[in-house]
Design a binder for these strands. Structure first.
Lengths: 203, 203
DNA sequence: GTTTACAAACCAAGCGCTTGCTTGGTATTG
DNA sequence: CAATACCAAGCAAGCGCTTGGTTTGTAAAC
C-alpha cells in the first residue's frame, strides 16, 4: 500500500480527517501555527484567521482550544503508526526494517506531516491530564513497532546497547532534525540522512 | 578545577549570578517553572510567588519577563561552556574527550542545571529576535568544542558519519533524556547511560 | 420545479478573567 | 540620608469562550 492509499483508508475509517474538509484544513493550519509559535502563543483568533472564519466560529467545530491540539496529535499518531507498520512490513532483514523505520520517521518529521509531528513531540505539556493519557496509549502502539525491531537486532548481536535506550536516543535525535534539517537546500537527501544515522550506529 | 571552582570563578567575573543572591534564586526558580510549565504558561505572579515577593516587585530586578528567560539561558550556556571546556581538557584521547563531553552534557541536562538546560533547548521560540541572536552567539562557542573533538575522531577513522550530523544527532538524543531519564530510581547511573551512548555509536 | 423545513456553518459582539507591566509610596540597609 | 528592595493597587490589552441571530447547503413535500 502506498502512503496515499493508507491515508485514504484511514479517512474512510474516520480515524483521520480528510485534509480537504473544513476540519482537516483547520487541523493542518493549527499544526503549522502550533509548531511555529507554540500552542500557548497561538490564539483562537490566529487559528480562525488561518482558515478565514471568525474566532467564535471555531467553537462550532471544537469544544475547546485544547481539543484542537489533541485532535492534531491523535490523528498524526494514527497516520504515522499505519505508515510505519507498512514500511516495516515491506522490509526484509531486521537491519532493513530498522532502516525503513528511521527513513519513514524522518519523512514524517520533515515532510508533509512535519508540523504535526513537531507538535506531537514538543507540545505535550499543554495537554490536559486526560488527553495526555489518551495520546500516550496510542504512542505505546507506535513505540511497540520500534522495540520489536530493535530487540530482533539486539538478539542477532548487531546492536550493542539496550533497545529501550537506543529507541529513546533515536526519538530525540530524529525529532531534533526538525530544527536543522532542510532537505530542499543543501545536498543531503532523506536517504542520505538515513544513511548517516545508520553509519553513526555502525550499521 | 572542580565544577564548584568553575562556578565560583564565573560568579567572581559576574558572568553568572550567585545562586544565593536574590537574582540567582529567582533565576533558579524561573528555570524550574519554565521547564515544568513552559515559559508562556508561567506568569509573573508564579515567578514572584516562587521567591516570595509581589509580582510587581519582579520588575525592580528585570525590565521584562522575557529578560528573565534570556538571563536563564545566557547564564546557563556560560556555565556549561566552562564545564565542558574543563572536562575536555582533563581527558586524553579523542575518544575519552568525546566521552567526557557526553558525560558532562548528560550531567548538565539531568543534574542541578537540568531545569535551565531544558529551558535553553526547548524555549528558544519564546525569545525575541535580538535575544535569540545573543544566545546563538554564545552557543556557537559551545558547539565549537564538540566539533573539534568529533573532527579529531573522524580524522582517526573512528567515526563513520559526518561530525556535524553526529553532533546534531547527539544534541537531540542527549537533550531528550530529560524527558525520560530519572537517575534516582532505576539502576542506570549517569556513567552507565554514557556507556550506552558510546556503545550505540560502536565506541 | 418551486416551496418548505431544518440543521450545519458561520458572524458580530462582547463577557469575564488573566496577562505583563506601571505607579506611588513605604520599609530596610549601609 | 540616600539607595535598594519591596508592597498594594490597578491599568490596558489580550485571552478563551459564549451568546443570539443570520446565512448556506440539502433534501423532502407539494
Amino acid at each position: 500500500m502506498s502512503p496515499n492509499q493508507i491515508l485514504q483508508s484511514l479517512i474512510a475509517e474516520q480515524l483521520v480527517s480528510d485534509p480537504n474538509s473544513a476540519r482537516g484544513r483547520l487541523l493542518n493550519e493549527a499544526a503549522r501555527l502550533f509548531r511555529d509559535k507554540g500552542y500557548e502563543r497561538t490564539t483562537v483568533r490566529d487559528l480562525a484567521a488561518a482558515v478565514g472564519i471568525q474566532s467564535g466560529s471555531l467553537f462550532h467545530h471544537f469544544r475547546t482550544k485544547e481539543e484542537i491540539l489533541k485532535a492534531v496529535m491523535v490523528e498524526t499518531i494514527r497516520l504515522n503508526t499505519a505508515l510505519m507498520q507498512a514500511a516495516a512490513d515491506r522490509a526484509g532483514s531486521p537491519r532493513d526494517k530498522l532502516r525503513a523505520l528511521i527513513r519513514t520517521e524522518l519523512e514524517s518529521i520533515n515532510g508533509q506531516t512535519g508540523e504535526a509531528m513537531a507538535v506531537l513531540v514538543y507540545e505535550w505539556r499543554s495537554l490536559s491530564e486526560s488527553s495526555r493519557a489518551e495520546v500516550l496509549k496510542l504512542r505505546d502502539v507506535y513505540e511497540g513497532l520500534w522495540l520489536s525491531v530493535l530487540e530482533e537486532l539486539s538478539g542477532k548481536g548487531q546492536l550493542k546497547a539496550d533497545p529501550f535506550i537506543v529507541r529513546r536516543m533515536l526519538t530525540g535525535a530524529l525529532s531534533w532534525t526538525v530544527t536543522w534539517y532542510k532537505p530542499e537546500r543543501g545536498g543531503l537527501t532523506p536517504d542520505g540522512l538515513t544513511d548517516q544515522v545508520m553509519a553513526m550506529m555502525g550499521l
